[in-house]
Every structure is written in C-alpha cells, then in structure tokens.
Write a protein that binds this DNA or RNA. Structure first.
Lengths: 81, 81
DNA sequence: CACAATTTGTTCGTATGTATT
DNA sequence: TAATACATACGAACAAATTGT
C-alpha cells in the first residue's frame, strides 16, 4: 500500500506537497536531524517532476523547517516538531 | 580529428549521445569487454555536463549494451557487437 | 597501512524551454 | 499575461569503490 497521493485540484501541487511533508514533520513521522527522502525519491513517490519537489522543499526551507546541504540532502530542523 | 559532435535541435542531447555510443559499439569502434571512455572524458569530448553523459550511459545500461562497475568504469557487453 | 588519483553514483541548486491553465 | 508543471541541461558538492604509490 503505497501512499500515492491524490492531489486536490485548484491547489498547486508544490504547495500540497509542502503541506504533506510539513505534516509528516509535525507529527514526528520525520524526526528532527533526520533526512527527508531525496528529491528523486519524492519525485517518484508522488509522481511529480523534480522541479515541483524542489519548489515544495524551498517553501519548507524558507519557513526554516528544514536545512539543505548540497551534495548531502535536506534535513529536518530541530524547531520543527 | 576530434569527433566534436553537432547536436541536432529538438532531440535531447543525452539521447543523441546514447545513439552515438550505441553506433560506435555496433560498428566495432568500441569492442566488447572494452571500457567506454570515462564520464569525465566523454563530458569534455562532447562538451556536455557530467549529468548528461550519465543519463546517456544509463540508457545503454538499461538496454543491456554496457555494464558498469563503480570505481572501475563502464564496459561494453558481449552481446553488443 | 596510509594516501592520493580516478571512476561511478548520488545529492541539491539554478536556468531555460515548452505546454497548459 | 501570469502561474503552474514538466523536461532538459549545466554546475557543484559529497560519497564510495578501485587502483597505484
């Protein structure tokens, strides 16, 4: 049973995806200091383009919920749970 | 005389590059069990990014024409000539 | 054993072009 | 026109395997 998301119409996918990830961090499904799935992985999981995932992650980064290190990955901030 | 490729428009470079390498294997310019030029070398030769070369090689690998050993290189399969 | 060079793989960032709405 | 979404392409950093010194 894969969590294949159904995206609601009239709301941009990248905003919905940011919401999904935000919820997973808030609920502790993704813990502080732990890495998010890679862009490529999220792209495949949700069936969206890399660029769309990058846009979603950028939102979370702007909110300070995650920190990104190029070449390593994106990690959940400590102030996110 | 370097084979500086002119890439046609409207066809992705990585697909054209895969075609070039495929032709070289089919014609015997690159023999079975022999290594392809390294990614860095192909990148310089054809004036494209590493990622583009990797995408081209991935196509050939998916087709079974080459096999890759990380740290060693990519080698032409026996069923490719 | 340690170290560096080479090689592939993986990661994220950015920019551009195209199509759709 | 603008925003969204996808595909392509380049740039850069990090990791791991291999090889040679």
């Amino acid at each position: 049973m894969v969590a294949m998301a159904e995206f609601a119409p009239d709301v941009p996918v990248y905003i919905q995806l940011a919401g999904i990830l935000r919820d997973q961090m808030a609920s502790g499904q993704i813990q502080p200091r732990q890495p998010l799935p890679s862009i490529a992985h999220l792209s495949q999981t949700y069936g969206v383009a890399d660029q769309t995932v990058k846009k979603a992650i950028r939102i979370l980064r702007d909110e300070g919920l995650v920190h990104t290190w190029p070449g390593k990955g994106t990690f959940v901030s400590e102030q996110s749970g």
